[in-house]
Each structure stands twice: as C-alpha cells, then as structure tokens.
Write a protein that binds this DNA or RNA. Structure first.
Lengths: 129, 129, 129, 129
DNA sequence: GTGGTCTAGACCACA
DNA sequence: GTGGTCTAGACCACT
C-alpha cells in the first residue's frame, strides 16, 4: 500500500506525505480512518520512527491528518479547503516547470493534457479497487 | 530576462537551468544563439561562478546547449528529442505529485487543465514579445 | 457547560482544570458547590477517569477544590488567595510570551488591552447568564 | 543575549523561537540581520544542532526568518503581517486562559492591564538598550 | 562553510 | 499504548 524508495532523491518523509495524500485523495483513506502509529509505520517501511513522525507533523500542519492525544493519528475530514496562497503558488510554479521540462522531452500541450487525464483517471478509480 | 531568487528553496543552479529551458522553449533563445560566458552570467546574476558552471554542465548533459572550445557556449538545435526515459519518468512522477498536491488545495481536473492551457498560452506567446 | 476538545494540543486534564477555574471565576460554580464525582465527570466528558482524577488532584493542590471523604468534591471558598510565587511567575511569563506572539501577529498594545477588556467582560457577565 | 533553561518544561526549541521573536520585536534583531549558524547557535546554547534547526525551521514557516542557501539564515522584513487565523485564535485562547489563571491568583482586570503595560514598556525600550 | 535528512536510541507526558 | 523532545553522530547537496 505504501511505496517508499530509500534510494530516491526525494526525502523519505516527503514520500510518506505524498503517499498518504494520494491514498486520501483516492478515498482509500477516509476521514477518521486511523493511520498506523508512528512506530508501526516505521517498522512497516523499515525507516526510523523520527522520519515517520516528521511526515505526520507536516501532514498535521497541512490539516490532512490530526492527532488525538494518546489514541493515535487520524485522517481529517476535509471540511473547507484552506486557501493557502503560498502552497498554491508554489505548486503552480512547479507545474509550470514540469511543463517546460516535458516540452524539452517532446511533450506538447495535447500530450500533457492526455497525461493529466490519465493521472486523474487513476486517482478516481482508486477508490473502487 | 533571468529570474533568480536566492531565497527560494529551489537550488540556484536549477533555477538557471529552468530559465534557459524556458527561454529556449519560448524561442527567445534560438539554436546557435550564444550564451553569456560562465563569468559574465555569474556577475549578471550575482551568484557564484561555480553555480553557473554547474547549470551549464547539466544543460550540456541534457543536450540543450553545447560548448565550442575557445568560442563559447551555444544553444543546440533541437531537431531530435532525446528519448531519455529516466527524465521522462521522473517528470511524469512529479506531474502526478503536483496533481495530488493541487487536488488537496481544491483544484479538480478541469481547473488543472485550465491552468495548463494558461501556462502554454504564456509559453507560446513568449516568442512574439 | 464543559468544553473539551480531544483534538486540541492542550492536555485534556488541563482543559478540565481550566473549565472549572473559569466556571468558578464566573461564579457559575460557587463555594461549597458539589462537583460531579470522578466517574460521573468522566462519563459526561467521555474521557478516561484517570484523566479527570488527575485534573481534580491538581485543582486540590491549587486549593480551588477540596475533597470530603465519603461526601464528594467541593469548590473551596476563595477568601484567601494563595500567594504562590511560582505559579504567578509562570503565568506572567506566559503572558509575556503571548504578548510577543500577538505582536508578531499584528496586535499592538491597544489591541491587546481591548482584547483583555473583552475577555473580562465575558467573564464578569458569565455569572448573570 | 539568549535565555535558555534546559530544566524548564517549555521545550528548548520553543524557547529559542520565543527568544528570537522577542529580539525581533525589540528591534535588537533587524530585517536582514544574520542569525548565528545552526552549529554556532547550538554550541553557544550547548544544545544539539538538530534542536536549533527545528527552531529555525518553525521560524521560517512563520516567515520570521528565511534561509539563503549556503549562506545562512536571516531575519525577514516583516512586510505584511500574515493573517493566520489559527495562530491568532490559539494565542487569544491562551490569553484568555492566562487571565483566568491570574484571576485565581489575585489579579483583577486593572492589575493585568498594568502588567501588560509593563511588558510593552520593556519591549519598546528594548531597542534603545 | 551553510542547512537538510536520516539513524539509533533515550526519556517524558498523556490517556 | 500513543506522540513529542532531545542527543550524538553520520552523510549529503548547495554555494
């Protein structure tokens, strides 16, 4: 269920964050679902508990999960999307960078949009699986 | 013409790379155009020459520019897109990550595609300017 | 009447303490009023009895409540304020920290004092309600 | 210049954060001033570099400082106060809690306001010293 | 030199 | 049992 690549140049804690965000968007993880405890997750992924903890803390900052003292960590219900201008601006800039990079790799507008469709198709059917 | 932000968390050398890629895609920089020398560029951008050098090396590795000994560095002609599977895979994975991140920021498929259109519109009209 | 948030980062036992202190200050709880037993309170608030017990112990230590064996727990009369230098020092330091935090959030002296007035207004009219 | 108490129940990294916020509010640290490097600060305060790093990262999240890659960490200019509703709500709640706590320690409204004046007086004259 | 990431292992508060 | 804090020490990327 979790895809961690220790040799990737993407930090492990970011990979954990992205995994959980993806599972949440795919509705495989639903509001109030309990996440594995820090220690469980750490032994599952064979990483240090501190690394998992860092990921959880960042997810909590982003209001995607929340902690109940002594009980564990849970997916938050996504009441209202926080309009975090900074994060949006950053994400859009990365999107722009990726378009340019893909442009240099032979992708034109249509191919990129087709790719987006493919990604969304995968995300949406995620819950059914 | 160049947009460098030393405060950003994107490495400066990557920012240089992305700037040149963007100018090239916008046809503001055209094949056989001469780039400033490492030292000129470094003093222009007020960064360390090593940083510019690293950017040029990476751009050369990606066949976007090439060096002629004693004459300088030039934009390559882009006739044949290199089918660099690794870079493509990496870019598509980042694209996927960004879609998930934007999904958590309230963007649905339509909004993302609209954004792509906007980006491409900007890139394409770049050459006219 | 009680405001408990298991998600908050303030420990539940502290929230219980603060709730009782507030009700006492607002004269909603008056000297010799009987508090619910530990178990009653625990089932009311849907928390662990140990947690309530810890809160009661701390309140007793602060002489805000007292226990009569076999009869229950009661609000103490507040004739003589305990001159607990440590607690005062700690509270004033927290007050200072909060002023600095609020200073960084755009609050100046006037705005903070206005806020204090508002808080006191709420506390004082609490008894009438 | 820095006041760290390892035995306090306030986490060290929070103490570092609060120290820097205070120095910044007192204009002893001014925009673009360089902070000691993580390692310098760590050896100054005789704490682990990770602890300092955690404090710096949180300060950066709060836009009070910013990092320039390879050069160090600097006080940010406080362009526009971020209207962080959550942090404001949390701070005001703590302020309320403190008023109640002080109420139980014999402080009435006037005494608390006098205390606020004292604190602000100290903060404002901080820059002159 | 700078900060960022990660590990291993310890201790503590809370429920 | 849970997460949070801290240390010591390692390695890496960037400038």
């Amino acid at each position: 269920m979790f895809n961690i690549n220790t040799t990737s140049d993407k930090p492990i804690y970011e990979q954990i964050i992205d995994n959980i965000k993806e599972l949440s968007l795919k509705k495989i993880l639903r509001p109030e679902d309990k996440l594995p405890s820090v220690r469980q997750m750490a032994s599952m992924l064979v990483v240090n508990p501190n690394t998992v903890s860092k990921a959880y803390q960042e997810l909590e900052r982003q209001k995607i999960i929340h902690t109940v003292r002594g009980r564990g960590t849970f997916i938050s219900s996504e009441t209202d999307f926080p309009v975090d201008k900074d994060r949006i601006a950053k994400a859009l800039e990365t999107l722009r960078d990726i378009c340019i990079e893909l442009g240099h790799l032979g992708f034109d507008r249509e191919k990129i949009i087709k790719e987006i469709e493919r990604i969304y198709c995968d995300i949406e059917k995620g819950g059914i699986k």
